[in-house]
Amino acid sequence: MASRESGGSRAAALLLLLGVGRALALPEICTLCPGGMHNLSRVAAYCEDTSKLMQARCCLNQKGTILGLDLQNCSLKDPGPNFLQAYTAIIIDLQANPLKDDLAHTFRGFTQLQTLILPQDVPCPGGSNAWDNVTSFKDKQICQGQRDLCNSTGSPDMCPENGSCASDGPGLLQCVCADGFHGYKCMRQGSFSLLMFFGILGSTTLAISILLWGSQRRKAKAS
């Protein structure tokens, strides 16, 4: 009996240590605001429906990837420098915050985002054309169904012949060079040579250093 109790105590201690370790490994954005996730929030509902892990203000999968972020009512004027940690999120709640109006580039790289909840007076990033549905309520605005603007008429033409259009977040696009091409407008063929780049940079720096040293030495002799 004693051995079973001892084994149970060890197992409980191990689980506690694992829990502490997991908590310490949380991305900083998950603990930006005090407290945990609101039980009635859409992010919490998403976590429960998909059986994902809820810790602090985040909804994560087993690998620790952020799938949901609930930062509502956090007195935020902007999401902060760590917000990019949530670029994998599918749902984000930022309502009840005094956010600045222009969030156009805040969501660069958030290509998986499908539901974004904002204060009522803050427009959806990228505008209504970047979302399937934009719904306004008395206290919030919900942007749903991020569109891939590369599939819109005329968008692929913005990229050069050796590049292709790719989504870069709500209302944002980027041109990705095809394999074997790089540089401005993907016009250069072949891989980018780091060795050549740093070789030229090093040679230029050395030449400038020698010229400066010679100039200072002549001034020293003249004085």
Rank of each mutant, 00 (worst) to 15 (best):
A44M: 12
Q216D: 00
G21Q: 12
R10V: 14
C186W: 01
R147S: 11
C159K: 00
A89Q: 05
K52S: 13
T204Y: 06
G202K: 07
H182R: 02
D139A: 04
R108W: 02
Q189S: 15
C186R: 05
A25K: 08
L103W: 06
R147D: 09
K63A: 15
C47T: 11
A13W: 10
I200N: 05
L149D: 07
T153L: 12
A44L: 00
M37N: 04
F137M: 04
C159G: 01
G36T: 09
L69S: 02
L18H: 13
S193E: 00
N61S: 11
P34N: 02
Q174C: 01
C74Y: 01
Q62P: 06
K138Y: 07
A166W: 13
F137K: 04
A89V: 07
S6H: 14
L53Y: 08
D70G: 08
F197N: 09
G7L: 13
S164N: 11
S128I: 13
S51Y: 11
V122F: 04
D132F: 08
A96H: 14
M37W: 04
T205M: 14
R42Y: 09
D168H: 08
C74P: 07
T204R: 11
L118V: 05
N39W: 02
C177Q: 04
L24S: 12
T31L: 02
L32W: 03
R4G: 14
A166L: 12
R42E: 15
G190W: 03
Q62D: 15
P160K: 02
M187E: 15
L206K: 03
T106C: 05
S191P: 12
P160C: 02
D49N: 08
L149C: 10
G8E: 15
M54H: 09
A96Q: 14
N82G: 10
